[in-house]
């Protein structure tokens, strides 16, 4: 049976930690917290993954909780989303070897809940309790222009996530839905609304192909959605020539409190979820049980109870590439960051 091995416990944040985000290429983890800082963590030596240190603390730019942190695809910039209604853009200065807040994006009426860069790094998305999703164009010299304000969610928007290859955005909301957004000649519009969850959708993540999406909810279930293009061989109806998304698998009965975060590994295809029930769960596609791509079965292969003691676990994130494809970071209400490795 596969299991999780705890590689490292990173202490330093002074309040609950909300999210963990891996650098796209280097072994660096960014975490953000109620203590209004982002911390960057790295192993002390490249050959020993069990000893880590905080290599940088990004502070001073936000007046309130930093809820979300995202690396640009090059890893040279970081975006931070704060309850203070601003998004910070940080740049690494190679000469000084430090991080500086080079831009502050304003416009949302209240708390920003999530920030995400598109695959090319040309676009940035933010979402807020003000029910809107904003799309920003990244221009030269740290200039950001707001291209669109999307106001179709009827409640607090919890998370935004870009498709791994295309300029397609997904957003998850307190209104229990997920919306998919696309551009048509500078005009962003909602392509599909994914209904099915019975309560707040807290987290979403695409798989490596971008044809599938996983979502986690306060309704204590995880849903796996598949994209069906027009004229698909399965005969799933589509509208207005747009692709439609359907739930092909629901994982229920695994968590018994709100599921706060979900991460779909781009390396080994595993799905990890974390919850207010203090547990990490890892799911793998069961290809022995069925090969039907339209109703797959996912089995729970690892369960790590009390992974942050008695505390809620708020965020989970798989290492993004082959180098440490079996690594996982989790963050909790205990203010602690943990790095885990899957042992097969």
């Amino acid at each position: 049976m596969p299991r999780l091995e705890l590689l490292a416990t990173l202490e330093g944040h002074q309040d609950r930690v909300w999210q963990a985000s891996w650098h796209p290429t280097k072994t660096i983890l960014a975490t953000c917290s109620g203590d209004k800082t982002v911390r960057l963590w790295a192993p002390i030596s490249p050959t020993n993954p069990t000893e880590w240190q905080c290599v940088e603390t990004l502070e001073g730019a936000h007046k309130r909780t930093i809820r979300s942190v995202a690396w640009s695809p090059t890893g040279n910039e970081l975006a931070t989303a704060s309850f203070d209604a601003t998004t910070g853009i940080w740049e690494h200065d190679a000469r000084e070897n430090n991080w500086e807040c080079v831009a502050t994006l304003e416009g949302h009426e209240n708390e920003i809940k999530s920030v995400s860069w598109s695959a090319t790094g040309a676009l940035l998305a933010t979402c807020s309790r003000d029910k809107s999703v904003w799309i920003w164009e990244v221009e030269s010299d740290n200039d950001f222009e707001c291209l669109s304000v999307l106001q179709e969610h009827t409640q607090d928007v919890k998370m935004v996530a870009w498709h791994p290859k295309l300029e397609i955005l997904a957003s998850a909301s307190y209104d229990d839905t997920i919306k998919i957004w696309k551009e048509d000649e500078d005009d962003w519009y909602c392509v599909d609304t994914l209904s099915g969850h019975q309560s707040t959708v807290w987290s979403i993540d695409f798989d490596a192909t971008g044809d599938h999406l996983v979502s986690a909810s306060d309704d204590q279930t995880i849903r796996i959605w598949k994209m069906y293009k027009p004229n698909n061989p399965q005969g799933i109806p589509t509208h207005n020539g747009e692709a439609t998304w359907k739930t092909i698998c629901t994982l229920s009965g695994y968590h018994d409190r709100c599921i706060y975060s979900v991460s779909w590994s781009k390396v080994n295809n595993y799905i990890a979820s974390v919850s207010g029930d203090n547990t990490i769960r890892i799911f793998a596609k069961d290809t022995e049980a069925t090969t039907d791509e339209d109703s797959p079965i996912f089995k729970n292969i690892i369960t790590e109870k009390d992974a942050h003691g008695v505390y809620d676990i708020n965020g989970v994130s798989w290492f993004p590439n082959e180098r440490h494809g079996d690594w996982l970071a989790t963050v909790g209400d205990d203010g602690i960051v943990r790095i885990w490795r899957v042992i097969e």
Binding site: T65, F83, E111, C258
Partner: peptide, 15 residues
């Protein structure tokens, strides 16, 4: 009930 049990909104309210 939904608002009272959304810890993110509670955290924001307490700021």
């Amino acid at each position: 009930n939904k608002q009272l049990n959304d810890k993110e909104r509670v955290a924001a309210a307490l700021e």
